[in-house]
Design a binder for these strands. Structure first.
Lengths: 215, 215
DNA sequence: ACACGACCTGGACAACTGTCCAAGACATCT
DNA sequence: AGATGTCTTGGACAGTTGTCCAGGTCGTGT
């Protein structure tokens, strides 16, 4: 028998075998990929196990229930993405106080997320947001993530010399969020003839508060 | 027996009984509500039938398959929302070329969508967008909807005298989209101490291109 | 009144789901 | 080597799903 009497479960105290830890991580990875790729309800014990290439019962062994598996998968994803945001902060905040440079950095970031690799994390995030709209329990998973995004945006706006960094930060986050979703939903279709870079540039110009009469 | 040889189906040619049409509409309504309320995968034959208060087999009788039911439900919702957008156009476009009035109209609209009644349609729309990101077939359901939103935004920006109505229109749509999602996901939490109206106002000011030095 | 066909639905079916368990595999200590 | 415990997993279980069909109901034309 394994685990506490309440449920089938991985070791109670000290984990003995590091391979178990590895397998657990692989299962989470498979779950994350499934969520982004096919949606939350595509996450079944058997599907996750098959994607990770392990026996079906493993998912029940390493996680108390399916909900816990999904919960932990989303938390793992959130942590990872927050870390990635911290890296970006350097490029957007301290370094470039230049409007053109920020435009370029932001555009690159968005385009990176449209990559097949970035897609998964991004779609999973939206899925999480929808979930949070319905089930309050999902909100605290999202909270740290949102805070990271907000901080990054605020830093960027401050570096650009915006007047109200709080408001413009929120607006930046929201606009980028909507922009990404629009691009994904249309299958990377161009933005009504306008290029992504131009749209991002216009957004930043508007948020910073156009420096007198530029044109 | 009913319907063509290929599948159980409502009448092939002339529909005789108008009550059938009514029941069909009720099923679609129940499906729409379910999608917004609990998500796409909460839509099961039995759940829809129960929500509409009809026998379980009805869903199979009126729709060739579950996918067709979902498809038609989303199309119905899209049509209805597009119609609602047309009504809004009057308030945002022709009438008020005033920045304050547009701010008020936009804020009202967003707040209306946060109502329990508006919530359903809104969440269903995001669900559809996620679906479109994954399954290209869902994109043409979204296409007309998006066009309606874009037109409305463009009209509003033109009325406000924006320089590039196309770009600023897209940005307006995206920002509002992100804003709504953020509000929903956080459970109507305030925007970091800033009021919704102020945020919307700042957005419009930025997009229109601040008229010289206002402050 | 009666028959006829379109309309409707209870129930059945196979396929899938989450969860559990008893038996096997394995490492480690004596 | 053998015993002892943990780790692993095939298989089973009840519940739910999409779909279908055989028979029942009901309005209509005669």
């Amino acid at each position: 028998m394994a685990g506490p009497p309440t449920a089938t479960r991985a070791p109670t105290r000290g984990r003995r075998d590091p391979r178990g830890e590895l397998r657990r991580a692989e299962l989470l990875e498979a779950a994350i990929h499934l969520i982004g790729d096919q949606g939350l309800d595509a996450v079944t014990h058997r599907a996750v196990a098959a994607a990770a290439g392990v026996p079906a019962a493993s998912t029940s062994y390493y996680f108390r229930s399916k909900d816990e598996l999904i919960d932990e998968a989303l938390r793992t994803l959130a942590e990872r993405e927050i870390e990635r945001l911290r890296e970006r902060r350097v490029a957007l905040g301290a370094g470039a106080a230049d409007l053109e440079a920020t435009t370029a950095a932001l555009t690159d970031w968005i385009e990176e997320q449209l990559t097949p690799a970035g897609r998964v994390a991004m779609l999973a995030q939206y899925q999480l947001q929808l979930e949070a709209a319905r089930r309050p329990e999902a909100r605290d998973i999202l909270a740290a993530w949102k805070e990271g995004t907000d901080d990054l945006a605020e830093t960027a706006m401050r570096a650009l010399g915006a007047t109200d960094v709080e408001t413009s930060g929120i607006l930046l986050v929201c606009a980028i969020d909507g922009l990404r979703l629009r691009l994904m939903a249309s299958g990377h279709a161009p933005l009504r003839g306008t290029e992504l870079r131009a749209v991002v540039h216009a957004l930043l110009v508007g948020l910073v508060g156009e420096p007198a009469a530029k044109r």
